[in-house]
Amino acid sequence: MSLYKVSIDNIEVEVEPGTTIMNAARKIGGNVVPPAMCYYSKLEGSGGKCRTCLVKVAQTSAVDTRPMPKLVASCRTMVQDGMVVQNITSPEVLDARKAITEFLLINHPLDCPVCDQAGECDLQDLSYEHGLEETRTTEDRRTFEPIDIGEYIKLNMNRCILCYRCVMVADQITDKRVHGILNRGDHSEISTYIKQAVDNDFSGNMIDVCPVGALTDKTFRFKSRVWFTNPFDAHRDCPHCSGKTVLWMKGKEVLRVTGRKDKYGELEEFICNDCRFHHKEVTEWVVEGPRKIERHSVISQNHYENLSDDKKLKP
């Protein structure tokens, strides 16, 4: 099958038919990749909801040279041959993205100083890049009591941006969903239907897919700021999963075990709860070496990586 030629921010790329604009942009890489708060390539049906990845289609295809009437979600819009897309070259897109970032923050508690996700939070990164310097809301924010989702996961609904990723993990790993969305509009909440435990060997992956600090690891909560821990690639023989993980160490102590995330913050593979929660001794692992953190994250502002000049975020 012949490839489709697409131009994103004046950079040409050839992709297979059926590719989304987002994945075409990821093929190019770098600054033209739209941010994604809800899309997750490993989760079927994800995307389209957060609207941070909106882009402008200046030309629909080589045949239909009209622009698309509205900004489109790049994660759910398929490319066509000859499509011309504008992301960071379109002031309209950047303006919309700024607005979406603000919408995501108006009910967010901004409690980064006490949030375990701080330092590796997609929303933190997004606001760092696209947020306003001041807040324009004076209203009260919606609040919920934190609840336990099973033995290992804490849900702090105040921080949730309703990306539905965890719901899709639940859909994907269990036959019987016990973890959906209740209510509607800005009253919506992730729920386990009366705090019913998510009883599945892979439920811990919900923590990793959560873009914010809504779902956190109860075995790691308040133990350390993530930037005080050092990540190491490690593996063990596991009967349930690949056993390939990242150990987050402080000295010789393993404070946390997570899956391995790529540069878009997506897990390379789901890992099992046994690896994640029950093997916190370094002797139980084969340590491969320090893990390189490649993300444009607040965490990377420290000593993990020397950002080359063109990648440096604005001061």
Binding site: C50, I100, L104, Y164
Partner: peptide
């Protein structure tokens, strides 16, 4: 419905 951010918030 609360699905997408601009409308929900």
């Amino acid at each position: 419905c609360g699905q997408c951010s601009p409308c929900r918030e």
